[in-house]
Amino acid sequence: MKDFNPVQLATPIFIVTIILEIVLARLGKVKANYEARDTAVSLGMGLFSGAAGLLTAGLVVASTLWVYEHRLFEIPMTAIWAWAAIFLLEDLTYYWFHRLSHERRFWWAAHVNHHTSQHYNLSTALRQTWTGGIAGTWALWLPLAFLGFPPAMIAIQKGISLVYQYWIHTEAIRRMPKWFEAVFNTPSHHRVHHARNPRYLDSNYAGILIIWDRLFGTFQPELDKEPCRYGTVKNLATFNILRVAFHEWIGMAADVVRHPRHALGYIFGRPGWSHDGSRDTSVTLKATWRQQQARAAPEPEAGT
């Protein structure tokens, strides 16, 4: 059980289903937009993501084992209740990791590459970070080891979550049954997360359970009247894989060099933050959109 690796086992399925989605799209059976260079970048990011993770793997493992040695409780991997608990707690951890990765530039720099594709298909799911380990977001999972969940158990559940999130990167599935949409993350919910429409920004951070977004006020349903437009607010317009992987780190460093007095803001402020307010953040974009919506709304008739 300790050697169980969900991602490794699912990798052949990833490849087969991407090919299947491409074929079915070409035959007109499903909705899926693929662009050869864009897909190549996604596959390349996924291929080298694992290799990049090796750079910090020793630190991650050593830190997790050290914390586990000082655990509060003894939680057995064989207990069903323990798996139910790790499922909920790991998924909640993922929600806050994902939200942090969108709301603070330092961690956005490691995550943004996942959002750089202007297409939304199964290959987009493989557009994974090369710098997540360096950004240190793995530390958010250390409290689970401190509680007493074995490191192998945490790793397995993280793998299950990653595999689950693969299938929701598609336009081929429109909606799941209402009860499923109410509880779980779905292609519809995650399309909203990948959209750059102002209405949809900063929404649906869920891993497996969409209930966290509903609970913490970040849920936004997909609306038929407003199709999702994918990518980042300012798209890169390049298929250079190195730029995709590192552009935000480079931009952040350049801002710090130009404005050292405001370094903390440029590093830990919201993506797009600037000391003089000359740039837009997701907050200002949504505020502008709301004002436009209010102005466009029809005025009530006299006497009503």
Rank of each mutant, 00 (worst) to 15 (best):
R279E: 13
W249Q: 11
T281C: 05
F219M: 00
L88Y: 05
F239V: 13
T170A: 08
H70C: 06
H275G: 09
L209A: 03
G136W: 08
V7H: 12
W289T: 04
S63V: 02
N240S: 05
V7M: 14
Y230I: 07
P198T: 02
L264I: 10
W107F: 15
L142C: 08
Y166N: 12
L88F: 14
K31M: 06
S161V: 11
T78L: 06
K286S: 06
H262Q: 13
A139K: 03
W66D: 10
I241V: 15
W167Q: 14
L55I: 14
T93V: 13
W212Y: 00
L92R: 02
V257C: 00
V16K: 04
P260C: 07
L285Y: 06
A253C: 05
M45K: 06
A263H: 07
H189I: 00
R243A: 12
V7Y: 12
I160W: 12
I168C: 01
Q157A: 11
L27M: 14
I80E: 08
D213N: 02
G277R: 03
A32L: 10
H189E: 00
Q128M: 14
W141V: 14
I75H: 04
F73I: 01
R174H: 11
A152L: 07
I19C: 14
H102M: 10
F14G: 09
A182Y: 14
S117Q: 07
G50V: 08
M153D: 07
E299S: 13
R105E: 11
G303E: 13
T11M: 14
T218S: 14
T284A: 03
G132S: 12
F184A: 02
P151S: 09
Y266Q: 03
S123P: 02
A125I: 14
D3T: 15
Y205L: 01
L54K: 04
